[in-house]
Design a protein around this nucleic acid. Sequence first.
DNA 1: TTAATATTTTAGCAATTACTAAAACGTAAA
DNA 2: TTTACGTTTTAGTAATTGCTAAAATATTAA
Lengths: 124, 124
Amino acid sequence: MSKTCIRVLADPIQIKECKESLNRLDDQLDQTTQIFNLSGNAARLKILFLLHKEGEMCPCDLSDILDISVGGVSQHLRKLKDGKLVKDKKVGQTVFYSLVDENIQVIKPFLKSLLDNHKKESVS
Amino acid sequence: MSKTCIRVLADPIQIKECKESLNRLDDQLDQTTQIFNLSGNAARLKILFLLHKEGEMCPCDLSDILDISVGGVSQHLRKLKDGKLVKDKKVGQTVFYSLVDENIQVIKPFLKSLLDNHKKESVS
DNA sequence: TTAATATTTTAGCAATTACTAAAACGTAAA
DNA sequence: TTTACGTTTTAGTAATTGCTAAAATATTAA
């Protein structure tokens, strides 16, 4: 860094405004970065899709479906839970995970369209 | 892996169906994983937001706004370009980057609402 | 109680990430 | 030409990721 590389033709007002915008939106940007980051992993996106499709699932079944060790699945689920995208419910010795609807609004449209595509393909 | 951990209570039909769904949607899942992955980084999400807000920007200005070295910005832009989320246009010695609209449909609603929130906050 | 099942946590690993500084590359101006 | 500017690429780094195997935890059944 340090060497300030500002173009001769740069518009200082535009740049200042952009910096202010980012500052003001900082919280929202961080929050959404986190949601996209959690969803931007093949295993986790599949988990989110499956929870959307099936309602709820347990680590063991997910492990079988995704072909990842149960421990690995559990770690993904913990991340998703830390990010408040999923919640869990214990029934006997098995734990059922499901989506936290209000916190996945950003990716919900995608999950829906994926499911629709899936159904369409099933028909044909 | 290897040790097949299938619950005694598991529904083999449900599991089989889920595996088939994932197989069928494989391409779409991969594609969207990549978009979310590209967007799930603080610097890149800010770049996408700024390109949406301003129309086009060059690496040098982005470097100043984001407080990241020009080289670092260039690397983010290359990733976004490889993922076809942005395109570039050379004018003299400066390169202007802008969004590829048809390829950011998944995250567009978010960018729009961010910008709306920004404008609302500006008023108050 | 003991044994089996389902999950979580831990330790360890190879691969990837995001960054910087510096070198290399183009383009424009003196 | 030489110099400056804007960008990209490279080399190197510390930190993070995603996975496994194994240990630890908790619940249920024998």
